[in-house]
Amino acid sequence: MASIVLAIVYIGGWILSMRIFGYFWKRRKLAINFAEPWFPEHVPRNQYIALLQQSEPEASEVQLTAALLRRAMEDVVRVLSMREDKQILANLVKQGTLGEDIWTQFTLAEKELEAEVMEVIAEANTFKEGWGQSILQTASEMVMHEKTKQLQKEMKTQREDETRKHALKEKNAEAKKEKERAKATEELLKEEEKEKAKAATSSKKK
């Protein structure tokens, strides 16, 4: 009798512990799936798709071309950033500094990006046969060119900063001069007073 109870308790214990393990395992898996995507939302892609679906008035071909170029530019930025991260990430995962789940996430994002790039190339070919071959090259030139254009904004803020700094410096210099001048006049007055006092005492002596 006692041995049957013992066996049931033993088996029951096993089942319970497996259930607990399973519960946590599942939660962990879910956590991986809900993890943040590698890249934020692909805004230019959404804009392009919205523009395609636009009616009354329909988007002109020029506007669609522009939106597709923007989308390709974002893809180029993403491809470059993934290429840069890949080696570092692989090393970190190999060393065990980072978990396998990050690597899974990364490869998933890579595949997604590959599909996105293929889609852009296919879209480009619907505009003009053969454009798909050069759209990415054009887009990467555009990414570089855009960095140069940022200089215009940078220069504007720098101009404001420097003007403010310079004005402040001038003001300080002016204030300093003013102070020195006040001090000098004060000293002069004191000196005069002393002279007067001296003159007074000497006249008294006489």
Binding site: N46, A50, L51
Partner: peptide, 16 residues
Amino acid sequence: MATSTVNLSIVNDKVV
């Protein structure tokens, strides 16, 4: 990946 829709229209030949 979640895709939020973009609401746009075209006014005076410009996307807004």
